[in-house]
Design a protein around this nucleic acid. Sequence first.
DNA 1: CCCTCGCTTTGCAACGATGCAGAGATGATG
DNA 2: CATCATCTCTGCATCGTTGCAAAGCGAGGG
Lengths: 341, 341
Amino acid sequence: MAGSTLRDVARRAGVSIRTVSNVVNGSVPVSDELRVRVQAALDELDYRPNLVARNLRRGRSGMIALVVPELDVPYFAELAREVITAARAHGYVVMLDQTDGDGERERELLGRESRATMFDGLLLSPLAISADELRLRTNRVPVVLLGEHIFNGSLHHVAIDNVTAAREATEHLLALGRRRIAAIGDQPYSTGETAQLRTIGYRLALERAGLTVDEELIVPTPRFHRHLGAEAMERLLALPEPPDAVFCYNDLLAIGAMHALTRAGVRVPDDIAVVGVDGIQEGRYSSPSLTTVAPDKAQIARTAVSTLLGVIDGSAPPPAEVKAPHRLLVRESTAGPAART
Amino acid sequence: MAGSTLRDVARRAGVSIRTVSNVVNGSVPVSDELRVRVQAALDELDYRPNLVARNLRRGRSGMIALVVPELDVPYFAELAREVITAARAHGYVVMLDQTDGDGERERELLGRESRATMFDGLLLSPLAISADELRLRTNRVPVVLLGEHIFNGSLHHVAIDNVTAAREATEHLLALGRRRIAAIGDQPYSTGETAQLRTIGYRLALERAGLTVDEELIVPTPRFHRHLGAEAMERLLALPEPPDAVFCYNDLLAIGAMHALTRAGVRVPDDIAVVGVDGIQEGRYSSPSLTTVAPDKAQIARTAVSTLLGVIDGSAPPPAEVKAPHRLLVRESTAGPAART
DNA sequence: CCCTCGCTTTGCAACGATGCAGAGATGATG
DNA sequence: CATCATCTCTGCATCGTTGCAAAGCGAGGG
């Protein structure tokens, strides 16, 4: 029942512990005769190396932690999938935790009693904690920030270019001839940096098109969830002069907005066109399917993981903000039934 | 930079290593004077316990692994969220891995070179590996099976009652007056045990209603993904006599099916009613919203985690199949616009 | 005044693995 | 035949922590 150790195997094979270790690891040459004998003992006892002990001795655990706000938010689930895959390619496994966007939980992670020492490094997608505070708390643990925070100059950080992404989404709506374009998802307070970048991109597109921004059309939401998108859309529909298009700061808001539109009997995209951000799978099969700005999640994950491993082994360049690619996927919610992807 | 150890702190405070350990753990009483002095040293050196060393000594790691086929499948993401939450309540953290439904990957997990020894236990949602094979490979590691496999009598197992769930879904369609009810998602081969149970429930409902099963209406799918639901639906629509309702074996299939129906101009639920299984959030905001049989994921997670911890510390009863509750959520895809939940 | 008791504090061993340096054995070389 | 290089193999120390048993110490009782 209890796992056998190198000592058990050594005793059985009549060799030293060290020789068994050499056979297991294959790094040091072992004579054929002994190798066979040791291997037999290994098999008979069904030896499995104790990785905790190995980690202690080697000083590395082969584990990284990925911390996201909510795993049941599709974007994070899809990103987690890619991170796990990317980590595996480097021989690493991934511990997952959620903060629920709770600042306390995020702080705890980096605090005294956290389990951070079990991991070689941390991929963090912070929501509630501010960039400045992060800097103060990340002396010990190698950290790479993921996706959604403004660059503060002291930590590695992988994200799409949010201003450009938002501008392109808005320009797409403009190119379709829409002129009264709303925005759902602004977060005009300290931890809403990503949202603020998207608002900047949105404004930029309108200004370049020579339009003035109607502040009434910018509806803030505290989080990026479906029901908040629906609520925001209802508010927009209640305006004396409703929009003819909506740029939602993520796909869940967009799906909530489309839900509200469908209920209200408003046609998408004929009456109101909708575009989101994130490129989640859900948007491919919504009715209508959702036009979206899709970050390259696999690329984000690969870059984040290899950067983190670089920080861990000290080979990484100084902290920098790495821009990941994104692209606009045009579907029915802006282009109508013609857009079948 | 490098973390300080108990020895560093002990040296600085002028006490023994053991005393520092006692202060850190608080289990053994320490005089006020020393405690204050040690605490000061702890703070100055910003001591963090090395959890790898602690784990080695204590023989437990405080980590469990959760292995699912695909994390970007919403059901598994939502379940993972609950598992992480439930584990945290017991002081455990969760390592996540994916098998992509690949039997090799699942086998690897339990094999010689796996990282399983790093974890105190394993929550496994097997897809490709058969129950018999599992039994042979799980001697060493405490395992609890999650959600989707038939009970083989030797492992703990938490799942909903799939036969009943499928029967209730089908009966709901019957109660609406539908008579030509299709089923999407059967998997009539060795690893499709969950699907087969749902087929049994489906047949049972029809038989009890005195209807004969039209085998043409049972469309198998190799996996439970959106696009396969759409393909299956297209095949059903091409029949000389299409169905007036569809029971899909999970929500993704249902969403794919509804997507195909919308494209084909078929009205849901007027022409064809659709019901799924899983209760994923996506179904609340689809158009129309999706009627579904929702397993109580939080309950499944709590039961699975506490059972696993029981197996780990030896206090668990002998392996048994634990049935988790489920309930039917009626929404627009069967009840029409009246059903607003 | 001595002994015992109870409390705090300590040193040592151990968890299971690997790094290192050196011991044997073997073969090659002068 | 002696010397040295080469190749295996081994023992010891160590990673940082905690369990255990015993040492130190002051107080209370006989």
